[in-house]
Simulated scan of single mutants.
Amino acid sequence: MENYINLIKLSVGTEDVDNLALWQKMPHAQTPDGLPRHVTRMWPKREAELLNGGSIYWVIKGVIQCRQRVLRLDEVMGQDGIRRCAIVLDPELHRTAQALRRPFQGWRYLKPEDSPADLTATRKTEEPLPAELSAALAEIGVL
């Protein structure tokens, strides 16, 4: 049994993995020390497991396409005085085997055994399929 847990999150408005990387380089999407972060309202209850090697798997256009290691969780206070969680991420995006996911709110836990594998070195150099084709292939179980 694995001793870590992953998260899965929709990347709303993102066109592809490269677009996600560009967005994460914007100052408002980074911590003061320059790392990408995703701010969320809920603090993960399984924090210790998440920080023990977990990643966030990004769903782009209905398909899991990549992941990033979770480095730490920072407390962020909103202008409204509400405590939020900044999920601080490793800047490296690891492309994964694609897996179809229906829309959902917020983030969810994702067990390691249910997480798509990283692409092999030879597959990383392949041109990615268009999002619509990836989603269609994943829906019929080809990807």
Results as ranks from 00 to 15, higher is better:
residue 1 M to V: 13
residue 2 E to L: 09
residue 2 E to R: 13
residue 5 I to W: 01
residue 5 I to Y: 01
residue 6 N to T: 00
residue 6 N to K: 01
residue 7 L to A: 07
residue 8 I to N: 01
residue 10 L to E: 13
residue 11 S to Q: 14
residue 12 V to E: 13
residue 14 T to W: 01
residue 15 E to F: 06
residue 15 E to V: 10
residue 16 D to V: 00
residue 17 V to R: 02
residue 19 N to K: 14
residue 20 L to H: 00
residue 21 A to R: 07
residue 21 A to M: 08
residue 21 A to L: 05
residue 22 L to D: 03
residue 22 L to Y: 00
residue 23 W to C: 01
residue 23 W to K: 06
residue 23 W to V: 04
residue 24 Q to G: 08
residue 24 Q to W: 05
residue 27 P to D: 03
residue 33 D to P: 07
residue 36 P to A: 01
residue 40 T to Q: 05
residue 41 R to A: 13
residue 42 M to L: 14
residue 45 K to D: 10
residue 45 K to L: 12
residue 46 R to E: 10
residue 49 E to R: 14
residue 49 E to N: 13
residue 50 L to H: 04
residue 50 L to Q: 06
residue 51 L to G: 08
residue 52 N to K: 11
residue 53 G to C: 03
residue 53 G to Y: 05
residue 54 G to E: 03
residue 56 I to R: 00
residue 59 V to P: 00
residue 60 I to P: 00
residue 60 I to D: 00
residue 60 I to M: 04
residue 61 K to N: 15
residue 62 G to F: 08
residue 63 V to L: 07
residue 63 V to E: 04
residue 66 C to A: 14
residue 66 C to T: 02
residue 66 C to S: 12
residue 66 C to K: 02
residue 67 R to M: 03
residue 69 R to K: 15
residue 70 V to Q: 04
residue 70 V to F: 03
residue 73 L to G: 04
residue 73 L to Y: 00
residue 75 E to I: 12
residue 77 M to D: 12
residue 77 M to Q: 13
residue 79 Q to Y: 12
residue 79 Q to R: 15
residue 79 Q to F: 11
residue 86 A to C: 04
residue 86 A to H: 02
residue 87 I to H: 01
residue 88 V to L: 02
residue 88 V to E: 01
residue 89 L to G: 00
residue 90 D to I: 06
residue 91 P to E: 09
residue 92 E to S: 10
residue 92 E to Q: 14
residue 93 L to V: 03
residue 94 H to E: 15
residue 95 R to S: 07
residue 96 T to D: 00
residue 98 Q to I: 10
residue 98 Q to V: 11
residue 99 A to W: 02
residue 99 A to C: 10
residue 101 R to Q: 15
residue 101 R to Y: 14
residue 102 R to E: 13
residue 103 P to H: 14
residue 104 F to R: 12
residue 104 F to A: 14
residue 105 Q to R: 14
residue 105 Q to D: 15
residue 106 G to Y: 14
residue 106 G to I: 13
residue 107 W to Y: 15
residue 107 W to R: 09
residue 108 R to C: 12
residue 108 R to D: 15
residue 109 Y to D: 08
residue 110 L to G: 00
residue 111 K to V: 08
residue 112 P to D: 06
residue 112 P to A: 03
residue 113 E to L: 02
residue 114 D to R: 08
residue 114 D to W: 02
residue 115 S to I: 03
residue 115 S to F: 02
residue 118 D to I: 10
residue 120 T to L: 12
residue 121 A to T: 11
residue 121 A to H: 10
residue 124 K to L: 15
residue 124 K to D: 11
residue 125 T to Y: 12
residue 126 E to K: 13
residue 127 E to F: 12
residue 128 P to V: 09
residue 128 P to H: 06
residue 129 L to Q: 11
residue 129 L to I: 08
residue 129 L to S: 10
residue 130 P to V: 08
residue 130 P to Q: 09
residue 130 P to T: 08
residue 132 E to W: 09
residue 134 S to Y: 07
residue 135 A to Y: 11
residue 136 A to V: 06
residue 136 A to Y: 05
residue 136 A to N: 08
residue 136 A to F: 07
residue 137 L to T: 12
residue 139 E to Q: 14
residue 139 E to D: 14
residue 140 I to W: 11
residue 141 G to A: 09
residue 141 G to H: 09
residue 141 G to S: 09
residue 142 V to P: 05
residue 142 V to G: 08
residue 143 L to A: 08
